[in-house]
């Protein structure tokens, strides 16, 4: 698929969608595979981000001894942990993008090619 997909006007897009055999696309092994591959990353990633913050809030609220412990110069644990969230989350985002582009987009492109109804029809 080219980088910039050709834009068609609205009604044409609606009409084109009506002709696509969605059930067949949904049941195809390719689609079931990419759906699984996406969720295999998405679900753990959401849980990871949730716990990354849950631990921070927990320590800040209920473990003042740890939260205020100086770990880097005068900077305390809660602050250093907070600042580490930036690189951790950013890198996770990059990993997701690389993962999706490498392993999922090629299969999705095949699904697109297979089920897109040619314009002339």
């Amino acid at each position: 698929m080219s980088d910039v997909m050709m834009e068609h006007n609205t009604d044409a897009a609606d009409e084109a969608r009506k002709k696509i055999n969605w059930q067949e696309a949904y049941d195809s092994p390719e689609f079931q595979k990419i759906k699984k591959k996406r969720l295999v990353f998405i679900i753990p990633a959401v849980i990871l981000v949730f716990f990354l913050f849950f631990i921070l809030f927990w320590v800040q609220s209920f473990n003042p001894a740890l939260a205020t412990k100086a770990v880097a110069g005068d900077a305390n644990f809660a602050f250093v942990y907070s600042m580490l969230i930036f690189p951790i989350v950013w890198i996770s985002g990059m990993l997701y993008i690389l993962y999706v582009r490498k392993t999922i987009y090629p299969i999705e492109d095949k699904i697109q090619e297979k089920y897109t109804i040619a314009k002339e029809e």
Binding site: M5, W22, R38, E108
Partner: peptide, 15 residues
């Protein structure tokens, strides 16, 4: 949902 699911993941038939 069948249609929306395929669309939302693959982009098939997107605007």
């Amino acid at each position: 949902y069948t249609e929306l699911s395929v669309r939302s993941f693959t982009g098939l038939g997107s605007e």
